[in-house]
Design a protein around this nucleic acid. Structure first.
Length: 112
DNA sequence: AGGTTGACAAGAC
DNA sequence: TGTCTTGCCAACC
C-alpha cells in the first residue's frame, strides 16, 4: 500500500484511548503538513485488520466530520463514548480531550 | 493538461 | 457560536 497512508495509520495508532486528535494534527505529526484532507482519505482506506482508531480523529474545531445524525456519525460517537469521551451536538471539547503527545516518545514509537 | 472533489483548516463577522 | 469564504493539495476523472 501507499507508504504515505501507512505512515498516517501508524501515527493514528498512537492516539491513546480516551483522547482525540484533529486531521491536521495527525498530518503534522506524520510529517505531512497541509495535508489534513489526505488523512481523512487514509482513515477511510485503513484496512480493518489494522484496528486503526479512526474514530479518535476529528475536525480542528472538535466536530465529527460526518453529518450529525448520520450512521457513521452515530457510530463514531458511540465508540468515543465507550472510552469516556464526551460528545455533545456532534462535537468534542478539544480543550479537554485532545491528545498532546510527547514528541520524542512519539518519534521513538514511530521509528520501528 | 485542466476541472472537480473531498472524513480539512483558518480567518472574518 | 454558526455560517461563509478562501486556501490547500492529492486523487480522479
Amino acid at each position: 500500500m501507499n507508504p504515505v497512508y501507512a505512515r498516517i495509520w501508524q501515527t493514528t495508532l498512537q492516539i491513546p484511548a480516551g483522547s482525540v486528535a484533529s486531521y491536521g494534527q495527525i498530518a503534522d505529526l506524520s510529517g505531512l503538513p497541509g495535508r489534513a484532507r489526505l488523512v481523512g482519505k487514509a482513515m477511510g482506506l485503513a484496512p480493518k485488520t489494522m484496528q486503526v482508531p479512526w474514530f479518535r480523529v476529528l475536525r480542528a474545531d472538535g466536530k465529527i466530520a460526518f453529518p450529525a445524525g448520520s450512521e457513521l456519525a452515530e457510530k463514531q460517537k458511540g465508540q468515543l463514548q465507550e472510552e469516556g469521551v464526551v460528545v455533545l451536538n456532534n462535537r468534542v471539547k478539544l480543550r479537554e480531550f485532545q491528545w498532546q503527545p510527547d514528541l520524542s516518545e512519539l518519534l521513538f514509537k514511530l521509528s520501528y
